[in-house]
Amino acid sequence: MTAAQADHARARSDIKELPEGFKLDTPRVEDGAAIWRIARDSKALDLNSSYSYLLWCRDFATTSAVARDAEGEPAAFVTGYVRPERPDTLLVWQIAVDDAHRGRGLAAALLDGLTTRTAHDLGVRRVETTITQDNAASNRLFASFAERHGAPHRREVLFDAGRFPETGHESEVLHLIGPFDPPPGPLF
């Protein structure tokens, strides 16, 4: 095996694969209601209107992903978009796993699958997201993503708590990850 082949094999093995019985897919409009319910039930995300999830599945399906269970229903999702002024950057808007499927690696597999696809299809080399300090699961997810992909990871406050109109909203910390080299071949 050449050094290039070894790097190729290592890069693919670093990708988190979906657990057996799940399929990585592009969201469809008919998934919007299920995605809204997963977001609502997460109790960690800012819940957007159900209408916005339908629009997201229509207008940003290319930069989003769902994990489907054996019946083809969404069990987890990640939504994102390419930043208009930074076309090499995917901003991950939300990621959530249905309560019945947590602890199985779906969030990491979704994130790896989506970033692999957008790297190959759109030239993405960086990921950004915002996370509040108290969201330990998301902070771990994105730190492990950066480590798995050997990418730099910086954090800075993007929106201080005082910018939010409602009281009690924590500051949103921007996670800047990358640049990273895309793994070989999209996963879906």
Rank of each mutant, 00 (worst) to 15 (best):
L114K: 04
F77C: 06
E166T: 15
R83G: 03
Y81I: 07
W93F: 10
V157K: 05
N139W: 06
A100I: 04
D112G: 07
E170K: 15
G80C: 09
F164T: 08
A136K: 08
A109F: 06
L91M: 12
A107Y: 02
T167A: 12
F142V: 09
Y81D: 06
L106N: 04
D121K: 15
L141Q: 03
P87R: 14
A108I: 02
G168F: 04
L141F: 05
L106H: 02
L106T: 05
L111I: 13
Q94I: 09
W93D: 12
T118G: 01
G123H: 07
R125F: 02
N139Q: 11
G162S: 15
F142R: 00
L106W: 00
A107S: 14
A137Y: 05
I95W: 00
V124N: 03
S144A: 13
I95A: 09
W93A: 09
D99F: 03
H120A: 14
N139F: 07
W93N: 13
H169N: 11
T130F: 05
E156A: 15
S138Q: 07
A108H: 02
T116M: 05
R125T: 13
V157C: 10
T116F: 01
H101S: 07
A109P: 05
L141Y: 03
R86Y: 08
E170G: 15
A108L: 10
E147K: 15
L106Y: 00
H169V: 14
V124F: 00
R126S: 06
F159T: 15
D99Y: 02
D121V: 13
G113D: 02
R86C: 08
R155F: 01
T129V: 15
L122F: 07
R155C: 08
V157D: 11
D88L: 08
L90N: 02
